[in-house]
């Protein structure tokens, strides 16, 4: 049967026939058209979008990383600044404290000396005043005593000694009253 067919149509397999060429051209044309007009532009767009998305993502990640690095850097800087500041403050406080103590000590010294010198002055003044008073009193008393002694010169020795005793008692009482007054 196949033998007969080959005999009927002596068609060589190396000679192309026109209808089949046309079919080939049409089919290829259809495939090419579909690819060229619709499918490849469509997929190329998607591929470009994907590449952009990947590149964009990578850029974003890089930016984030850079930002993180920067933040870390600034934190470190701030931290070291803060440490310096703290050390400085501590130093300052120490210095201030020492200065304060020294000042206080000086002030105390000064006040003590003031008090002492005031005390000395007071004592001197009192002494002077007492000496002054004493001198006046002694003068007066001596004059009074002398007057009395002269007035009673003619009397006897006993009277004399009584006068002296009396005088001395008076003197004592006077001194006592002056003492209490002074004490008061």
């Amino acid at each position: 049967m196949l033998m007969q067919l080959a005999a009927e149509e002596p068609q060589s397999p190396v000679v192309p026939v026109v209808p089949e060429i046309v079919i080939g051209l049409i089919c290829f044309g259809v495939i090419f058209f579909v690819f060229y007009k619709k499918l490849l532009p469509s997929i190329n767009k998607a591929l470009d979008e994907r590449r952009e998305a990947i590149e964009g993502g990578m850029e974003k990640a890089e930016a984030t990383q850079a930002e993180a690095r920067q933040t870390l850097e600034s934190y470190r800087e701030q931290l070291s600044e803060a440490r310096h500041e703290a050390a400085r403050l501590r130093q300052e406080a120490k210095e201030q404290g020492a200065a304060l103590i020294a000042e206080m000590r000086e002030e105390g010294q000064r006040q003590r000396e003031e008090i002492i010198s005031a005390g000395h002055a007071q004592i001197e003044a009192d002494r002077k005043q007492a000496a002054e008073l004493l001198r006046q009193d002694v003068g007066k008393l001596a004059v009074e005593l002398a007057g009395r002694l002269v007035g009673e010169s003619l009397e006897d020795h006993a009277r004399q000694s009584r006068t002296i005793d009396r005088f001395l008692d008076e003197l004592e009482a006077k001194a006592e009253t002056a003492g209490t007054e002074a004490a008061r």
Partner: peptide, 26 residues
Amino acid sequence: PMALVFLSTVIICGFFWAAFARPKVV
């Protein structure tokens, strides 16, 4: 053979149409 050529055309167009007509980024 002609039928196979037609089928090839249909298969290629069909396959790539299904894959590329509405492409997704992912």
